[in-house]
Design a protein around this nucleic acid. Structure first.
Lengths: 335, 335
DNA sequence: ATCCCTTCATGAATCGATTCAAATTCCGCG
DNA sequence: CGCGGAATTTGAATCGATTCATGAAGGGAT
C-alpha cells in the first residue's frame, strides 16, 4: 500500500512506465520536458526503485560478497578495505560475510549468496571441505576469486601469500636469534594457512636442528594465545620462543606471559603473523610476518572483474605475493 | 539458460509449479510421495531458489542491515556479534555497512538499503545531518533502531550508553590522580559520541579546576592519535594526561608517545574509551571506559524485532546503559 | 450407490522493473 | 502539401516465486 511503484509515477506524470524506466536508466533518450516532469513526480511521490524487481529482470544482483574467516581480525578488514574502492567504482555493492572459521556458517552464507544470485565472490575458504560448495557456486556461473589461498588444482583465480615461505622466515629469524627450542601456536590444523605456516616452520627447524613443539588451538584469536601459554608454562622443558599463526594469537600469548611475569623477549620471544596495526602498538612491540593486506584485496577485486568482463574466454590467474619479516622488540636479541 | 527455475523442476517431477512451491514452503501440505519426487528433481537439476523473485512477491527482504561508523573498530564488530544470533535465529540475514564516519558513504548505503527493501536497520548515525535520511527510511516503513545514540526527540527505538557520564568518569579519574592539565583528543566534533564525551569531561574539569586542552581530530583511529601527540609535544605547557575519544585513538597516541620516549603514565597518562580487547594487551595496559558492547547489539536487535512484530501499535523504547571505569597501568599513580 | 468431508494438486494472477518492436510525433525540405 | 527520417513514447511480454480459489481424487458412512 505504502509502496509507490513505477506505475504510480507514470500515472502522476502522465506518461507510460516505459518512459519512467527510461528516465531512470537512459535519461538521454528522453525529451528534456518529459524528463523533468517525471523527475518531479518521482520526488513528489517519494518513489524508490525496487531492487528485487530489477534483479529479477536482470538475472543477477550487483552485490559482490566477501567471505572472510573473522571480521574482527584487522587482517581481513584491511583486505576488505583494499577491495572496496574497485568494487564500488564498478557499480557494485559490497557485503561482508563472516564465516567465523566455521564450515557450517560458511555454508549457510554460501547458500544465501547463491539464492541472491550475487555478481561475484571473494572468499577465504575455511578448509578443504569447503571446496565442494565452492565448486557448486562456480558451476552455477558465479565467478569467484580465492583470497589468501592458492587455487591448487582448482579452476579459479586466486590471490595468495606464500605462507610456507612466511613460516620459514619466522622460524629462520628465531633460529638466527639463537633459539633452539620453539613453539608453534595455532589451529585448527585444518585451516590451510595454519598448515602452511607450520610446514615452513617445520622445514627450517629440521634443517637447523631446532626442537619444535606444536600447540594446536581451536581458533585464531586472543583466547587461543592465552590458553596455549597456560599449557606451555606447565611444561618441564619450556620453549624459549613462540611462533604464533597470527597476530591475534600472539597478542593473547603476550598478554598471558606478561600476566605470569614471564619477560618478553628475555625469557620467551614471540613472533606473530599478518603485521596488523595493533602489532606495533603491543605491550612489547610485536615482530611479525607482514602480508600486503590491502593489495591482496585490491588484486582479488581486479581479478574478479576481469573474469566477469572476459566471460567464457577467461583464463584464470593465480597471483602469489611474498611475505616479509618485520623484526621488533618481541624477538630482540636476548641480553 | 544455465539457471533452473521452478518451472523446470515442476516439469521434471511431473507436477505444477504451485506444488513445487509448496514442497519448499509448506512441505506438510504435500503428500509424502509427491514431495520426495519433487525433492529428487530439485537435487537432480541443482535447483536454487531465486531470492529476488521471492522478495519481489513478498515485498520485503529478510536482510537486517547494521550500519556502523567503522568496521575495523573492534567496538563495532562486537556490537554486530551481539546482534547476529538474534537476527539469524529469527530467520534474518545480517549485512554490515561501513559508513567510515562519512555522511556521503552513509547516505549511499541508505539509498541502496532502501532500494533493497530491507527488513530493518540498526544504525549508528554519523552525525545530526543523518537525521533527515533516517526519517525518510522510517517514513517508508523501514523499522530502525538507533545504536549507541539516544533517540533524542526523534520517534525511534534506541540503545545507547550515557556518553556524557562516561566522559565524567574519565575526567574524574584523571583529576583524582592529581592531573591539573589534561588533553581531550577526538573528532570530528560533529560525531555525537565525541561531543558527549567531551561535554562530560568539560563539566568535571570546570568543577575541579582542571585545565582542558581540546585536540580535534579528523577521525577516530590510530593515525588520529599519533597526529594529536605530534601536535601536543610541540606545546610549551604540555598536558600531563590525555583522554582519548576511543581506544583506537588512545593506542595510536600511546604508540607515538612511546616512540618519542615519553613515559606512560609517568610523564603522560592516557585513558581511552570502549575497552576493546586490545586495550588490555597494549604496550602499557590501557585504562578505559567500558561499554557493554555485545549487549548493545543484542538489545538493539531485540528492539527491532519487537517493533517489527508489534506493527502499528508499537511504542518506542529507549534503553540507556551506564559505562564503567576500568583503571589499568596507563593511568597508574605517578611515582 | 450416493453424499460429504478431507486431503492434494492445479494454474492463473500478481509483485515491479526492464526491454524492444511498433506506433506516434515532429521537422525540414522539395 | 506531402514525404522521409529522426526523435520520442508506448505497452505488452518477461523474469521466477508465491498465493489462493477451484477442482479432483480418495475414503467413510449411510
Amino acid at each position: 500500500m505504502t509502496t509507490t511503484s513505477m506505475k504510480d509515477v507514470a500515472r502522476a506524470a502522465g506518461v507510460s512506465v516505459g518512459t519512467v524506466s527510461n528516465v531512470l536508466n537512459r535519461p538521454e533518450a528522453v525529451a528534456e520536458e518529459t524528463r523533468s516532469r517525471v523527475q518531479a513526480a518521482i520526488t513528489e511521490l517519494g518513489y524508490v526503485r525496487n531492487d528485487s524487481a530489477r534483479q529479477l529482470r536482470a538475472g543477477r544482483s550487483r552485490t559482490v560478497a566477501v567471505v572472510v574467516l573473522d571480521v574482527a581480525n584487522p587482517f581481513f578488514t584491511d583486505v576488505v578495505r583494499g577491495a572496496e574502492p574497485l568494487i564500488e567504482s564498478a557499480g557494485g555493492v559490497v557485503t561482508v560475510c563472516d564465516s567465523g572459521e566455521d564450515v557450517r556458517r560458511e555454508r549457510r552464507h554460501l547458500e544465501i549468496l547463491e539464492e541472491q544470485r550475487v555478481l561475484g565472490l571473494l572468499i577465504t575458504p575455511v578448509d578443504d571441505t569447503s571446496a565442494s560448495w565452492i565448486e557448486r557456486l562456480s558451476g552455477h556461473d558465479i565467478p569467484l576469486v580465492l583470497v589468501d589461498r592458492g587455487a591448487g588444482r582448482h579452476p579459479h583465480c586466486s590471490v595468495a601469500v606464500d605462507d610456507v615461505h612466511g613460516g620459514r622466515l619466522a622460524a629462520r629469524h628465531l633460529a638466527d636469534r639463537g633459539h633452539a627450542r620453539i613453539a608453534f601456536v595455532g589451529g585448527p590444523a585444518s585451516i590451510p594457512q595454519v598448515a602452511d605456516r607450520l610446514a615452513g616452520c617445520r622445514e627450517v627447524c629440521e634443517e637447523r636442528g631446532v626442537a619444535l613443539e606444536v600447540f594446536t588451538t581451536a581458533g585464531l584469536n586472543f583466547a587461543a594465545g592465552r590458553e596455549a601459554v597456560e599449557q606451555m608454562l606447565g611444561l618441564a622443558e619450556r620453549p624459549t620462543a613462540m611462533f604464533c599463526a597470527n597476530d591475534l594469537v600472539a597478542l593473547g600469548a603476550l598478554q598471558a606471559l606478561t600476566m605470569h611475569g614471564v619477560k618478553v623477549p628475555q625469557e620467551c620471544a614471540i613472533i606473530g603473523y599478518d603485521d596488523i596495526d595493533f602489532a606495533a602498538a603491543a605491550a612489547v612491540p610485536l615482530s611479525s610476518i607482514r602480508q600486503p593486506r590491502a593489495q591482496l584485496g585490491r588484486t582479488a577485486a581486479q581479478l574478479l572483474f576481469d573474469e566477469i568482463g572476459e566471460g567464457e574466454g577467461h583464463t584464470h590467474r593465480n597471483v602469489v605475493f611474498q611475505p616479509e619479516l618485520v623484526a621488533r622488540a618481541s624477538t630482540a636479541e636476548a641480553l
